[in-house]
C-alpha cells in the first residue's frame, strides 16, 4: 500500500505528458479528465480519508465555476486570480455549511447535503441576473494565463493549466494524508468514538477537512468554467454530486492515485462509449459499474495493491 501511495504520482504525471505528444487531438478530453480528477480528489478527502459521505459536493464545484465566470464577466480576466477567488469563496461556503453537516451520522449527512444541494441549485436558478438562470453564463472571456498563454482552440493551454492544478492538488493532498492531521482523519474514519478519548477534536478536524475539500472542489469548478468558457446550473446539480461519488468509489476510495485513475477511467469510458453509440452508451456505463463492484474490490487501487501483493508473494 505504501509503495502505491508514494510511487504513483510521478508515473501518472509522465503518462499525462506523454498523452500530450501521443494524442494531440484529444487534449480537450484530457483536460476534462484532469478537472474530474481534481473534483474527485476533493471529494475523496471527505469520503476516503475522513469517512464522511456527501451527496451535495457539486455545490462547491458549481460555486467555484460561477465565481470564476462572474468575476471574468466583470472584468477580472486573469485566470489565476479567478482560481484563487473560487478557492476562497468555495472554502468559505464550506466553512459556513460545516455547522450543519458535521453533526449527525452518515444518514443524516446524506439528507442534509442533498437538501443543501437542492437549495443552492434553486437559489442559483432564481438569481438569474447573477447566474444567467437556465441559460447559463457564456458571455465572458478569459484572459491569457499569466498574461502569456491564450486559451487556444486545440486546448494546449487548457491542458497544461489544468494539469498543473491537478499536480499541485495531488501533491498537497498526498502530503496532507501523511501529516498528523491526515492521520487524525483516518482515525476518525476508523473509529469516531475513540478519537475524543485520545484528545482529538473530531468536530474541528472534520470542519477543517470539509473546508479544504470545498475549496478544492471550487478550484475544479473554476477550471471547468475557465477552460470551457461556460458556467451553468448543472455544475451545481445532483448528477455531478453522484458522479463524483462513483468516480471515487470506482478508483478506490482513500487512495489518491486510485481516485485519479477512477476519475480519468470513468470519464474516458463515458466519452469513448458515447462516441461509439450516442444513444445507448449509458447501458455500457451501468454494466461496467456493476461489474466493478464484483471484479474490482476496493476499486482500481485495491485491485492494484492485491496484484502487487500476489507478485511479491510469488517472488
Amino acid at each position: 500500500m505504501r509503495l502505491v501511495r508514494v510511487g504513483a504520482g510521478l508515473p501518472l504525471l509522465l503518462l499525462a505528458v506523454a498523452g500530450y505528444f501521443l494524442f494531440p487531438e484529444y487534449l480537450t478530453l484530457f483536460t476534462s479528465l484532469f478537472i474530474l480528477s481534481v473534483f474527485a480528489l476533493s471529494y475523496d478527502l471527505l469520503q476516503g480519508h475522513a469517512g464522511v459521505v456527501s451527496l451535495g459536493h457539486a455545490v462547491f464545484f458549481g460555486t467555484g465555476a460561477y465565481t470564476a465566470a462572474i468575476l471574468a464577466r466583470h472584468g477580472l480576466e486573469e485566470p489565476l486570480l479567478g482560481l484563487l477567488a473560487a478557492l476562497l469563496v468555495s472554502a468559505a461556503l464550506a466553512l459556513v455549511l460545516t455547522r450543519i453537516v458535521v453533526v449527525g451520522n452518515d444518514l443524516t449527512r446524506l439528507l442534509v447535503t442533498l437538501g443543501v444541494g437542492f437549495l443552492v441549485f434553486e437559489a442559483a436558478n432564481q438569481a438569474r441576473d447573477l447566474t444567467g438562470g437556465a441559460d447559463g453564463l457564456s458571455d465572458f472571456t478569459m484572459g491569457p494565463v499569466l498574461g502569456l498563454f491564450r486559451f487556444d482552440f486545440a486546448g494546449e493551454t487548457a491542458f497544461f493549466y489544468s494539469l498543473a492544478v491537478l499536480a499541485l492538488v495531488y501533491f498537497f493532498l498526498w502530503r496532507l494524508a501523511g501529516s498528523p492531521f491526515g492521520l487524525a482523519l483516518r482515525g476518525i474514519r476508523e473509529n469516531v468514538r475513540r478519537m475524543p478519548a485520545i484528545g482529538a477534536p473530531v468536530r474541528r478536524h472534520l470542519a477543517t477537512a470539509y473546508t479544504i475539500s470545498g475549496g478544492i472542489a471550487g478550484l475544479a469548478g473554476a477550471l471547468l468554467a475557465q477552460t470551457s468558457n461556460f458556467a451553468s446550473l448543472d455544475m451545481l446539480g445532483f448528477e455531478r454530486s453522484a458522479e463524483v461519488m462513483m468516480m471515487a468509489t470506482l478508483g478506490g476510495t482513500g487512495s489518491i492515485p486510485g481516485v485519479v485513475l477512477g476519475a480519468t477511467g470513468l470519464g474516458y469510458l463515458k466519452d469513448a462509449l458515447s462516441a461509439m453509440s450516442p444513444k445507448y452508451w449509458q447501458l455500457g456505463i451501468g454494466i461496467v459499474l456493476m461489474l466493478s463492484v464484483f471484479v474490482l474490490r476496493g476499486g482500481i487501487a485495491g485491485a492494484f495493491t492485491a496484484l502487487l501483493r500476489r507478485l511479491r508473494g510469488r517472488a
Partner: peptide, 11 residues
C-alpha cells in the same frame, strides 16, 4: 453524431 446529454451541459 455526438450526444450532449440535454440541457445545461453546455461544457
Amino acid at each position: 453524431t455526438r450526444d450532449d446529454q440535454g440541457p445545461g451541459s453546455g461544457d
